[in-house]
Design a protein around this nucleic acid. Structure first.
Lengths: 320, 320
DNA sequence: TTGTAGGCGTTATCAA
DNA sequence: TTGATAACGCCTACAA
């Protein structure tokens, strides 16, 4: 029994002859090793858990892609779970992975530290991905939401706009809050008074962007520029503006966030803030793997992925 | 030990009092059940393996989403793997999942039955997703590639086009081959002679679509309509045509396949063939779950998801 | 209703 | 280099 194990695992403590003998018999019997049992004995699953808020859209697809790409090279798998991770659900999701993964990547824009503090006590390896108020007890990677939004709004202000609206992201969402914060800071730094009348609600959907745009059009002193907290809403707004016969960028300048592939293809092409999501996944996975493979390292790392302004036609900075 | 197990699993054979007692001690000790060990004893992992060709783009994101949505409701997880699954790699990927999943969804447009025949012998539950020449030994779901392509080309022919080009998908790809077959059949049925000069090579990328379009423009008797085997190539072609000053749809009609979200937003909006990818994932997952949960059923199911023509401006059928 | 013993399929330990 | 034997952490008869 032990020798079989050694043969299967290509151990050097076994004769080439016996190895081939074992291999032959294994083939004849159709034997295949049982990964679960191996994990139990080995205490390594070679699997990382990926907990996502939901599997919507390009963003998550790209994150998973980055993670999987990194992880597969070293023979790991991804066990993904995408429940709504508010409160007890998150805890349940983590617990259900507990003997089946070596560590976890947790992405939850509505994350509150305490929940996982209870479940994740002990030294269970975790890396937080784009979670709010990163608990210093955990490693974490985030996007430069604040900086990206700031750059976008500063750019709009530099183009001469003084009345710049924002279409906010979903309430309670970390990214949304950070982007709003960046917007406000840029407004202040540009010497523009804050005006809650031009801070429109939204929830990251196209429809909410369209709605906000329509509300804007009904205003007496309509904003001359709009910063939508993500591209979907910007595209929704774009459609609503076109429908109302309002020209972008001539009458209203428009900027989004995320730089989804579609941003380049709408008309006019959408000025946005680019984040390399796949790289975010890669970096996060690499960090987790380091914790798993490398020596225990008490240092916690907090990393931020840069967000860069991509100027296209919709903001009016380009001539054609 | 047994009582603890019963308490944890909410068995009815245990007093409420003892259950709470156990729960209290568990909490104090920070005990959490080990999923792997449980699976080993139970012989059920409540996990399905998902083997994908690669994690590119919207398509796979949507498939996974559909699968996960279906599967999570019944308490299952997804173990995903996205290696290049040609030949031995596929076998290795399956084997590495072998004691860690209850069944597998296998998607591989370059799948050849024999590979898995060897690995998947015995009654290991498998459902094929969009694999070529579905082995009758396996359940399988596919997309109506042939029918969708046929409808598209017939539509173009009915608009009066007689010289209809195709930009083919990647060589060796199942979808690509089926779509080409549909194209040829529709041409034949419309009384149009096959002409290999207008069957352009492509590989599903935007760039390959642009290239094909440029080649077309150089022809003496340029086609008046183009069917691109997917939307990415159609969009690439669209860009190339615009660059050359050729109007779509006035000078050249254009149709794609897949109906990716972007199709609605390019200018002109792209006529395409819509497939509900998420539903494809859902149906496949449901089928696998049925095999896992339900009684053994020797019947093999082969299902095809419909593909429906979506007419937009790029084909010239609409006035504005 | 509870406890005891054996087994799930593998690896790790320790002799041989 | 090989072969027994005890873990790994849990569940499931079976008996109490």
């Amino acid at each position: 029994m032990a020798t079989v194990s050694r043969a299967v695992n290509e151990s050097s403590l076994v004769t080439a002859a016996t190895r081939q003998h074992v291999a032959a018999i294994a083939r004849r019997l159709g034997y295949m090793p049982h990964g679960g049992a191996r994990s139990l004995a080995t205490r390594r699953t070679h699997t990382i858990g990926v907990l996502l808020p939901d599997l919507y859209g390009e963003f998550f697809s790209e994150v998973i892609r980055g993670i999987d790409l990194t992880v597969r090279d070293v023979g790991y798998h991804c066990l993904v779970s995408s429940a709504r991770h508010n409160g007890a659900q998150l805890e349940a999701a983590i617990r259900s992975m507990l003997g089946r993964v070596d560590g976890v990547i947790l992405m939850s824009p509505e994350f509150t530290g305490e929940i996982s503090r209870r479940t994740l006590h002990g030294g269970f390896p975790v890396v937080l991905l784009n979670c709010p108020s990163p608990d210093p007890a955990f490693d974490s990677l985030t996007i430069a939401n604040y900086e990206g939004a700031y750059d976008m709004v500063r750019h709009l202000a530099q183009l001469g706009h003084r009345r710049i609206a924002i279409i906010q992201g979903a309430a309670g969402n970390f990214d949304a809050a950070e982007r709003l914060r960046g917007y406000r800071a840029a407004m202040r730094d540009a010497g523009l008074a804050p005006d809650s009348d031009v801070e429109f609600a939204g929830d990251f959907t196209e429809e909410s962007g369209a709605e906000a745009a329509r509300a804007m059009l009904a205003m007496p002193d309509r904003p001359t520029a709009i910063f939508a907290a993500n591209d979907c809403m910007a595209i929704g707004a774009l459609a609503a503006l076109r429908e109302a016969g309002v020209s972008v960028p001539d009458q209203v300048a428009l900027g989004g966030f995320d730089d989804i592939p579609m941003a380049r293809y709408v008309t006019p092409a959408l000025t946005s803030v680019h984040v390399d999501i796949s790289a975010l996944g890669e970096r996060t996975a690499a960090r987790l793997l380091a914790k798993l493979e490398g020596p225990a390292d008490a240092r916690r790392i907090r990393d931020t992925l840069p967000a860069t302004l991509v100027v296209r036609r919709s903001c009016g900075a380009l001539q054609n």
